[in-house]
C-alpha cells in the first residue's frame, strides 16, 4: 500500500552519512541516556518474547526429553547426530529449498504483473483491489483448509470443475501423493503471498514520478524498454523488501503444508519447518535440534541474500 519507495533502513543510515550526522546532544536529562529511552522498549520486548525462548530452544536441543515431555538429563550432541542420521533429512532439506525458490520466484513475478495491472486507471480499480486483499485478510490456515476442502477427492469443487471441463477423467486425490501435492501447495503459498507483495510493489510504482515516463516516451523508448530501463530499476527498493519478507515467510511457512498434507505421506511433503513440528511427536530434543538447524539456515540464507543484493551498500 504505501511503502513509499522505501529506502531500506540501512540505506537510510548510509544516506545519513551524507548529511552531517547529528551528534547526540550533550544536554541533560533524557538526552544523556542517548538512544535508550527510544529503543529500549523494543529491545526489552524482543529479549523477553523472542530471545528468551530462543535460548530455551537451544538448551532443549542438548537435552534428553522423554516422549511424555519429562527432561531426563543432558544429551550432549546426540540429538544433532540423530537428526543428521534421519534418512529423510536430505530430501526434506532439498524440498525446502525448492519450495522456497519456486514460491518466492513465482510470487515476485506474478506480483510485478499484478502491480502493473492494478496501477492502471480503470473502472472499479478500488473494488478489485479490495478483492486482492482477501487472501491476506483471511488467515493462511483457513485458506489452506479451504483449498484442502476444494481438492477433496470425494466432493471437492475443484475436482468437480476439472471433471466437467474434461481436464481429468476421474476424480483425483491431489494431496495424497507428493508429486501432485507439491504443486498445489506451492500454488496456495503463492496465492497467499501475492497480496502483500503486490501492494508493496504498487506502493513502489506510485513513487515513480510521471515525468520520468514522459521523458522516456519523448526519447522514443518502447513499452518494454521503458519497463526494463525505468520502471524496474526504480522499483528495486520495494522489490527487495518484498523479496526478503517473502524469503523469510515462505521458508518458515508452516500452516499451508500442515493443514493440507501434514507433511505426509511419511515426510514426502515436509519442509524443514513441518519436519521439525512432526519430530516433536517422537523426540522433543531432536525437534529442537531441527529448529536450531532451521534457524541457522534462514540466517545464512538471508545474509547471503543481503550480500548478493548489496542491500547494505552505502549509497
Amino acid at each position: 500500500m504505501s511503502l513509499k519507495a522505501p529506502p531500506s533502513p540501512a540505506e537510510t543510515g548510509g544516506g545519513r552519512g551524507g548529511r552531517a550526522p547529528r551528534p547526540v546532544s550533550r544536554r541533560s536529562g533524557l538526552a544523556r541516556l542517548g538512544p535508550l529511552p527510544w529503543i529500549a522498549p523494543v529491545i526489552l520486548l524482543i529479549l523477553f518474547v523472542v530471545v528468551w525462548p530462543v535460548v530455551e530452544l537451544i538448551r532443549t536441543s542438548f537435552l534428553r526429553v522423554s516422549s511424555s515431555g519429562k527432561v531426563r538429563g543432558s544429551a550432549g550432541t546426540d540429538k544433532y547426530t540423530k537428526l543428521f542420521g534421519e534418512t529423510d533429512l536430505a530430501s526434506v532439506l532439498m524440498w525446502t529449498v525448492i519450495w522456497t525458490v519456486v514460491v518466492v520466484v513465482c510470487t515476485m513475478l506474478i506480483s510485478l504483473a499484478l502491480a502493473q495491472l492494478f496501477n492502471q486507471r480503470f473502472p472499479g480499480r478500488t473494488v478489485t483491489r479490495w478483492a486482492l486483499i482477501a487472501p491476506w485478510a483471511a488467515s493462511v490456515l483457513m485458506t489452506a483448509i479451504g483449498f484442502k476442502w476444494m481438492l477433496n477427492q470425494t466432493a471437492g469443487v475443484l475436482n468437480t470443475l476439472m471433471l466437467d471441463l474434461g481436464l481429468i477423467d476421474k476424480s483425483e486425490d491431489w494431496l495424497g501423493r507428493s508429486e501432485t501435492a507439491w504443486p498445489w501447495m506451492m500454488a496456495v503459498a503463492v496465492f497467499v503471498s501475492l497480496p502483500f507483495t503486490t501492494y508493496t510493489l504498487l506502493a513502489g510504482l506510485q513513487t515513480i514520478p510521471g515525468e520520468v515516463y514522459e521523458a522516456s516516451r519523448i526519447d522514443g523508448a518502447g513499452t518494454w524498454q521503458t519497463y526494463r530501463h525505468i520502471t524496474l530499476p526504480m522499483l528495486r527498493p520495494a522489490f527487495l523488501i518484498g523479496l526478503v519478507i517473502n524469503l523469510i515467510n515462505v521458508f518458515n511457512s508452516f500452516p499451508i503444508i500442515y493443514a493440507m498434507t501434514k507433511g505426509g505421506p511419511g515426510n514426502d511433503t515436509s519442509t524443514s519447518m513441518v519436519f521439525m513440528y512432526t519430530l516433536k511427536e517422537t523426540d522433543i530434543g531432536e525437534s529442537a535440534a531441527m529448529s536450531v538447524v532451521n534457524f541457522v539456515l534462514v540466517v545464512v540464507l538471508v545474509l547471503i541474500f543481503l550480500k548478493v543484493s548489496r542491500w547494505n551498500e552505502e549509497d
Partner: peptide
C-alpha cells in the same frame, strides 16, 4: 483410496 497413506479415518 488411491493413497491410503494420506487418507485419514475421519475422511
Amino acid at each position: 483410496y488411491p493413497n491410503p497413506a494420506s487418507t485419514d479415518r475421519k475422511t
